[in-house]
């Protein structure tokens, strides 16, 4: 399994994603986040920090939507932090901002 940098403070888990998120990389990212969320039962907010992500296609949208469902099932929410302009474009098209809030 890949290792993601992350930070937990109170009930907030921030995962720091990097490089390119496509069908090829989505599976391991998903697995790693689910493991972190599963191990930390008190987490109520999952934040995707995308500052180091250079590319994301709809496979990344699938990852975010899946984690949204995961968090919603435990009464939690998700947030997106620091996406680049082209990622903002794809998040908007997919309606992700209706489910979440932007985190600066």
């Amino acid at each position: 399994m890949i290792k993601l940098n992350y930070r937990i403070s109170d009930a907030e888990l921030t995962v720091f994603l990097k490089d390119e998120i496509d069908q090829n990389s989505a599976g391991p990212i998903r697995e790693c986040i689910d493991c972190l969320v599963g191990r930390n039962r008190s987490v109520r907010k999952l934040i995707f920090d995308l500052s180091k992500v250079t590319f994301m296609d709809s496979s990344g949208i699938g990852v975010i939507l899946g984690r949204y469902k995961l968090m919603a099932a435990r009464g939690g929410t998700i947030g997106i932090a620091n996406p680049n302009e082209s990622i903002v474009k794809i998040l908007r098209i997919a309606g992700i901002y209706k489910l979440t809030n932007k985190v600066s």
Partner: peptide, 15 residues
Amino acid sequence: EGERSGMGFAVMKAF
């Protein structure tokens, strides 16, 4: 089952 978003063609059309 593969957690696909179903947004592939929508993204192509938008871009």
